[in-house]
């Protein structure tokens, strides 16, 4: 696969990660010579794990990291009271999986938890530190993750509702291009784009901005977009003799959507 140039948004994201890492390394250096070198790694890696494609994804990943590290660490540290050899790794893995699933932990959280089995039991220095290793690692990680999420908020931040409007504009552009006959999109591409739009909408509904979608006007706007998309997809699929019917219905839905969007 040929490399492709990163988009402006991806370049901004790379600079944010770099800056968060810079701050993390600076804080570690400012903490003085008494702090271990490995703590610098934890805090910088925390920043590197953050700043994912959306703030929601960053938050979920951070939560999974912290809960997984604490849960996995606690199970393994307790286990080491009874078992020390390599067998403990297998037992620890099984225990974490069974207990974690019983507790309803997500796959990402479980993954972070089982990594602790390897990190504690495969590295004698970590095993000697026991609970302190878990506390130390979790604390510095948390600091790095928080730094990453703070940088995410400070620079080029787009609230969920604004992202939804961007996504709607993108979708409308694709439907317009289809109606104008200048689009290469097939039904599958349109469906995927709408799926992505719905994911952004779901993120808004889970956010404090959900109120912004509660009005009847916004609900009608969403329905009009869905209707326009349905007719656009059908336009690609139906026999050519019937295409104009869907095109007409699609234009009407777009018109309704635009008048709703223009309304105060």
């Amino acid at each position: 696969m040929l490399p492709r140039p990163p988009s402006p948004q991806q370049i901004r994201n790379a600079l944010q990660v770099g800056f968060a890492g810079f701050l993390a390394a600076g804080i570690h250096a400012a903490a003085g010579p008494d702090v271990n070198a490995i703590d610098g790694f934890y805090v910088v890696y925390g920043a590197a794990r953050s700043l994912l494609p959306t703030p929601e994804a960053s938050r979920e990943a951070a939560w999974a990291r912290i809960v997984g590290t604490v849960f996995g660490g606690a199970v393994v540290v307790l286990l080491t009271q009874a078992l020390h050899n390599w067998l403990a790794i297998g037992v620890g893995y099984v225990l974490i999986q069974l207990l974690g699933r019983r507790l309803g932990l997500s796959p990402a959280t479980l993954m972070n938890a089982v990594i602790m089995t390897v990190l504690i039991l495969a590295v004698p220095a970590h095993e000697r530190m026991g609970g302190m290793y878990v506390v130390d690692r979790t604390g510095w990680h948390l600091l790095g993750l928080l730094l990453g999420m703070a940088v995410e908020r400070l620079f080029w931040f787009r609230p969920p509702l604004q992202r939804l409007e961007d996504s709607e504009r993108g979708l409308l552009g694709r439907i317009d291009a289809l109606l104008a006959g200048t689009s290469q999109d097939g039904a599958e591409e349109l469906i995927s784009a709408y799926g992505a739009h719905c994911a952004v909408r779901a993120a808004v509904l889970r956010s404090p901005q959900a109120q912004g979608l509660a009005s009847e006007g916004m609900q009608q706007r969403h329905e009009a977009l869905e209707q326009a998309l349905r007719h656009a997809v059908a336009m690609v699929r139906v026999p050519s003799v019937l295409r104009s019917i869907d095109a007409e219905a699609c234009r009407e839905a777009l018109l309704r959507l635009r008048s709703l969007a223009a309304a105060p």
Partner: peptide
């Protein structure tokens, strides 16, 4: 810190 900025 600068090395981390460049690397990340």
């Amino acid at each position: 810190a600068l090395g981390v900025f460049v690397g990340l």
